[in-house]
Amino acid sequence: MTDFAVPAVDISAYVDPDGSPEARRAAARAFDEAAATVGFVQVLGHGVPTAVTGAFADALDSFFDLPLEAKKVYRTPPEINRGYSPPKTESLSLSLGLAPSNRMHDFFEAFNVGAAHTDYPGVELPTTDYPENVWPEEAGGFREAVSAYFDEAGRVARTLTTLFADALGLPAGFFERYTDHSLDVLRMNNYALPPGEVALDGDLTGMGEHTDYGIVTVLWADQVRGLQVLGRDGGWHDVMPADGALLINLGDLMARWTNERWMSTLHRVKPPIVAGRIERRRSAAFFHDGNIDAVIETLPTCVGADGTSAYPPITVGGHIRAKLAGSRAGVANTEAEREAARVLAARSA
């Protein structure tokens, strides 16, 4: 299993309005190959300024370095996917229906922001799914730096869906009607806390095995071990971003659209422990999930030879709510049998 590698794809031809058709075709072919085999991609040429990511990293530190009680002020109910999540209040494995005794035990803390209903004027949207953001006043410059990165990550996600249409032989702009009021969420994660706040007990799980829920995830992360991807060989492999790269993986909705031509890749986080303490690791996942009312069904070009699909049609909202009820509220998802089976097979391998 030592030959596992995450392919790198340069998408600069899609970022540059004058990118050549030949360069775009090459990028689309390379991404298609990576998505069909590994499922994670190192994306280069994304155009996110280092000044933006640098200020963003500082903003994460300014919030996560606050005392735990100060951060808990920004906690929201499980059904509101915004604000602060303290350590051991979530279990990502429950989004697949997998976790011992439905125990909320993932060792990470997070802060979420996302698209609010007011960001889409003229569209009637449920405020529970598109809530307003909460912003920590104690962390100076946090809102400005996070908003700037949110906009850049969203641009990268939309650029990728343009590439997806080309890679899958779809009409230009195919995904726009599914994403013009997309459920976009940026989740900022921290895997190190001062000693004494959380016990390092048992088999430490930074973030349990899960697939991402939506269309595509844009991941910024420190170059620190912890993220592991389940390969096609049934083994877990360490993954770190290359210099200047963003890690890209596909979510369940893309697997449904493509009938698993492109898989939603299972991954987890096992934060490294050095001298009895967790080595600090930060990450931020931008989830581009699609319109809440969009119906996702297998593309005609991806159905089986007999015209069948592994998945029935589903709305974005129904799928995302079932996943979040597992990870955030402890209600095991019973509609993820295919992904759960892959986890179980890996555990017994």
Score class of each variant (00 low, 15 high):
Pro241Gly: 08
Ala345Cys: 06
Thr161Gln: 15
Val146Cys: 04
Ala192Met: 07
Pro272Glu: 14
Glu79Thr: 14
Ala55Asn: 14
Lys270Gly: 01
Gly47Asp: 07
Thr159Leu: 10
Leu44Pro: 03
Ser101Tyr: 11
Asn259Trp: 04
Leu227Asn: 09
Gly173Arg: 12
Pro77Cys: 07
Gly251Asp: 05
Ala13Asn: 10
Arg338Tyr: 13
Gly45Val: 04
Thr2Glu: 14
Asp201Arg: 14
Glu335Ile: 03
Glu22Gly: 08
Leu92Arg: 02
Ala51His: 13
Val185Phe: 12
Ala5Lys: 14
Ala221Lys: 01
Leu299Met: 07
Ala27His: 03
Glu138Val: 04
His319Arg: 11
Ile314Trp: 01
Asp32His: 15
Pro300Glu: 13
Phe175Met: 10
Ala28Val: 01
Val38Ala: 09
Gly114Gln: 00
Ala172Leu: 11
Met263His: 10
His210Gly: 06
Cys302Tyr: 00
Glu152Trp: 02
Glu335Ala: 13
Ala70Glu: 14
Ala139Ser: 15
Pro100Asp: 12
Lys270Cys: 09
Gln228Lys: 09
Ala284Lys: 00
Arg256Ile: 15
Arg225Pro: 05
Val274Lys: 11
Ala99Ser: 15
His237Ala: 08
Ala139Trp: 00
Gly326Trp: 07
Tyr149Thr: 01
Glu144Trp: 02
Phe107Leu: 15
Ala340His: 03
Gly154Asp: 08
Val224Glu: 11
Pro17Val: 05
Pro313Phe: 03
Val343Ile: 11
Ala165Asp: 08
Ser182Val: 07
Gly290Val: 09
Glu132Ala: 11
Ala336Thr: 05
Pro78Asn: 04
Arg261Asp: 11
Leu253Ile: 05
Val52Leu: 02
Arg75Ile: 12
